[in-house]
Simulated scan of single mutants.
Amino acid sequence: MTCEQLSKEECAFAVSAWGKRCVLERYVRRSGLEAYKCTTSDIEADKLKDLIETNQCIEACGLDRDTLGISSDSLLESHFTQKLCSSQCYERCPNVVDLYFNLAAGEGVYLPKLCETQAENPRRGMAEIKSSGIVAPGPINPVGFLGAPASSPINPVEFLGSPALPPY
């Protein structure tokens, strides 16, 4: 299977026979009408090939078949992270977990730890990731204003793990 052969309804979250992730792209035709095409990205799926994500996983993980491109932005949304970290998604949809595990790792976030934090305190999990997707840094200097000890509610070390391997 090649990504370019897939319809708009099958493209997002699919993996080609060569293990490359498929992405849905929008373009404008000469007539001015918008159209969609499925293309092959440079992003490789870990140990997955020739796969079109199931509707059950799309729903369980809070995804949308009309998703354009691949982005870690959705990890900033508490509702999405709750769905992604749910047992229905996290334990049953290895393609989706692999994708978001790698997207999170690219932003310096360890997905299993994010899911653990999400389960304990959803607001805290999201507060620890800045809108850029980077883990919020703690104080560089442990001494705060006028020599008082600095305190930071954010501990980026909690989200870092080693090595960055998918959880299956």
Rank of each mutant, 00 (worst) to 15 (best):
M1S: 13
T2D: 14
C3S: 06
C3K: 04
E4R: 14
Q5C: 10
K8M: 04
K8R: 15
A12G: 04
A12Q: 03
S16R: 09
S16H: 07
A17T: 14
W18H: 15
G19S: 11
K20S: 08
R21K: 11
V23P: 00
L24P: 07
R26P: 05
R29N: 14
R30I: 14
R30N: 12
S31Q: 00
G32T: 12
L33Y: 09
E34G: 13
E34A: 15
A35T: 11
A35P: 08
A35E: 14
D42G: 11
E44S: 15
E44Y: 15
A45F: 04
A45Q: 05
L48S: 10
L48D: 06
K49G: 07
K49D: 03
D50F: 04
L51W: 05
I52E: 13
E53L: 13
E53Y: 01
Q56C: 04
I58V: 15
E59P: 00
C61S: 11
G62E: 04
L63W: 00
L63V: 13
D64G: 09
R65L: 09
R65E: 03
T67H: 01
I70K: 05
S71H: 09
D73K: 14
L75M: 07
L75E: 02
H79M: 03
F80R: 04
F80T: 07
K83C: 08
K83W: 00
L84H: 06
C85H: 06
S86V: 04
C89F: 06
C89D: 00
C89V: 10
C93M: 00
C93Y: 05
P94I: 03
V97F: 01
D98A: 10
D98F: 03
L99W: 02
Y100S: 06
F101K: 00
N102V: 05
L103P: 00
A105F: 04
A105P: 01
G106M: 02
E107A: 10
G108N: 01
P112G: 08
P112R: 02
P112F: 07
K113P: 00
K113S: 13
C115G: 12
C115F: 07
C115M: 06
E116L: 11
E116F: 10
N121V: 06
R123H: 08
R123G: 15
R123K: 11
R123Q: 10
M126W: 00
K130N: 11
K130S: 12
G133H: 01
I134H: 02
I134C: 08
V135T: 13
V135Q: 01
G138I: 06
G138V: 07
P139D: 06
P139N: 08
P139S: 06
N141V: 13
V143I: 13
G144E: 02
F145Q: 08
L146A: 14
G147H: 07
G147K: 05
G147D: 04
G147P: 06
P149T: 14
A150I: 09
A150D: 03
S152N: 15
S152H: 09
P153D: 01
I154M: 02
I154T: 13
N155L: 09
N155V: 10
N155A: 12
N155E: 02
P156W: 00
P156G: 10
F159K: 00
L160N: 06
G161L: 03
A164M: 11
A164C: 14
A164H: 14
A164V: 12
Y168I: 08
Y168S: 05
